[in-house]
């Protein structure tokens, strides 16, 4: 299956390990990753906070470029990017006024788009079964952290999972052999880009999430969202300093754990890119 792939600015830089692990597991799972030619930033939360047109037009350009690859499916692993591209494609197909504006701006006709736009969990959900598991994640106690953008608001996006108690990651992690702990913060918001503009609020939100994970008995948080992962992992040192806590909880992308269970070596999964080193934990469980 050929998949049009939009890394976005995050996966190109601050969330490199998601890009590395995504590509590493795709091949063996039968996914042919085709990077979208000359992609641009989707505008993130800034475009939809400042300009109605640009919040549509920036991701729409990527959708148009992706259509030239001949892929039937499209993914933007960063959930914020995913949301923008999903909505842009919908407007491109269903909102003639917006499409007309885009054509006026670019000075050329653009076609409708019929690729299926999938989020990062959706891409792997049906590919992970017991047959791919070579090294089960035995003994690893995890909580799954979906964040908000992948599951909320419901009925808006093409992906169905329960917005309050989603199950897709849980199912993947159980298949990989990890011990999945139920907890109430699966979709609690970490603050996302407020980490740049209202840091105190983000630190508190992320502290609460880490505390809940710890209290639930988790050894690691499994993340699917780049912003959530960054707020819990990269900013864990800031949180410890601010609240005089001593959290040492790795926040690992689910794609990295899929790779590990498939028997792919750790250095090909970007584990060294994480800030809270997961290796001592994984070694103690003989998973490395």
């Amino acid at each position: 299956m050929k998949l049009a792939y939009y890394p976005g600015c995050g996966l190109n830089g601050s969330s490199k390990e998601l890009d590395i692990s995504f590509r590493a597991i795709s091949g063996p799972l039968g996914i042919d990753v085709v990077e979208i030619p000359d992609w641009n930033c989707c505008g993130g939360s800034s475009a939809h906070s400042t300009s109605h047109f640009l919040s549509f037009a920036l991701p729409a350009r990527n959708v148009i470029n992706a259509e030239t690859t001949g892929c039937e499916e499209f993914t933007a692993p960063c959930p914020a990017c995913y949301v923008r591209h999903f909505l842009a494609q919908r407007d491109l197909n269903e909102n003639p006024e917006m499409k007309q504006h885009l054509e006026n701006a670019l000075g050329r006709k653009v076609d409708k788009s019929d690729m299926k736009i999938k989020n990062v969990i959706e891409v792997f959900m049906d590919k992970v079964d017991s047959s791919i598991v070579k090294k089960p994640l035995k003994g690893l106690k995890v909580v799954n952290y979906y964040g908000c953008a992948l599951v909320k608001p419901p009925k808006t996006f093409g992906f169905f999972d329960d917005p309050e108690n989603p199950q897709s990651l849980d199912k993947i992690m159980r298949t990989l052999g990890a011990e999945v702990i139920d907890w109430p913060y699966k979709t609690e918001c970490c603050g996302a880009s407020l980490c740049f503009t209202n840091q105190d609020a983000t630190w508190k939100a992320s502290r609460d999430i880490l505390q809940m994970a710890k209290d639930a008995g988790a050894q690691a948080v499994v993340a699917a969202c780049t912003m959530c992962q960054m707020n819990l992992d990269m900013r864990q040192s800031q949180i410890n300093k601010k609240y005089k806590t001593n959290f040492n909880i790795p926040a690992i992308f689910f794609t990295q754990l899929i790779g590990l269970a498939m028997g792919i070596s750790a250095d090909k999964l970007g584990l060294d890119k994480l800030y809270v080193d997961p290796k001592p934990l994984l070694r103690s469980l003989n998973l490395l």
Partner: peptide
């Protein structure tokens, strides 16, 4: 140290198109 910061910006080829979108907005 983790190779996550690029000192220089990355310029895409279609910057003229991006400019058109901004001008139109």
């Amino acid at each position: 140290l983790r190779g996550k910061l690029s000192i220089l910006p990355h310029n895409i080829k279609g910057r003229d198109e991006i400019k058109k979108l901004y001008d139109y907005a």
